[in-house]
Design a protein around this nucleic acid. Structure first.
Lengths: 141, 141
DNA sequence: ATTAGTGCAAACTATTTGCAATAAG
DNA sequence: CTTATTGCAAATAGTTTGCACTAAT
């Protein structure tokens, strides 16, 4: 239902407010897109989709804001493809699987093993596991 | 000692032979560099270092061959930095830690947990975990 | 002989930046 | 009213490609 999406948008709006970051029209459009269309997108993907409705949107603005949203924890930046960053609109920590045949990315629940606080004396802030292989769909066809 | 390095070079030469890939002078220079200088390098790093001794070396050749070596399992391609691929000259599977302060990359022994053969119905061929945080050296200074 | 690799420069793609006009607080 | 953002175009950086020449098998 609409209100669930809107309340998730408002959560993100709150994050911006807490950081004293101006809530522009373009940012609200992007936030609504992210919450409405959960998935994995390149900056170009987002730009192409939103350009339909907002022809004056600039790809530089998409890049600037996705980068900002990543810093704020609103999206995740995935470095799973060889040539570009993919934004995961689902912000909770989880891992990813890339199908080497079809290129689709799947969310994988992070193993219950908890994030180590320390490794060889280094302090760990975050971790990300990427899996590679052949997905269910490709295997069956 | 010299012979240990040379025998490791020969292992890689054997891999090329098995795949019927010509062993050129440039490839041998690259292979010797990789075995002698274990570590994490960008294509540009390797190019800059070897250009001293081999001024006619081309960065395109470095890219071509590192990409080939990665396919053959002679090096690992790391997508841990935001803007470029890093080659790890140590080919055995292991994870990596990136220091968010100094940018150094550290090798991390892969958790004893074995690679799952399957995840949500997808067949897993490989996996890689990247850790991010503050390294021992930076924390102490 | 034949096939593949090298080095160079140019091309390409993802991303970033400079800047004038505009919108947000 | 002051500061930050937008959209555009141009710039940048990493990587790839086309091609003539050369080397490897």
């Amino acid at each position: 239902m609409q209100s669930v999406i809107e309340s998730k948008v408002q959560e993100n709006v709150k994050v911006l407010r807490e950081h004293h970051i101006p809530l522009t029209t373009t940012r609200l459009v992007l936030l609504r897109f992210l919450v409405t269309n959960r998935g994995h997108y390149s900056a170009e993907d987002i730009y192409q989709i939103l350009k339909e409705e907002y022809p004056s949107l600039s790809i530089a603005t998409v890049y600037n804001n996705m980068s900002l949203f990543a810093k704020l924890g609103i999206v995740q930046e995935l470095r799973i493809e060889r040539d570009k960053v993919i934004y995961d609109t689902y912000p909770e920590p989880h891992d990813h699987f890339l199908c080497l045949k079809c290129g689709r990315i799947y969310d994988i629940e992070t193993a219950t093993r908890s994030l180590p606080k320390e490794l060889d004396g280094h302090v760990v802030h975050s971790a990300h596991t990427y899996y590679f292989g052949i997905c269910k769909d490709c295997r069956e066809s």
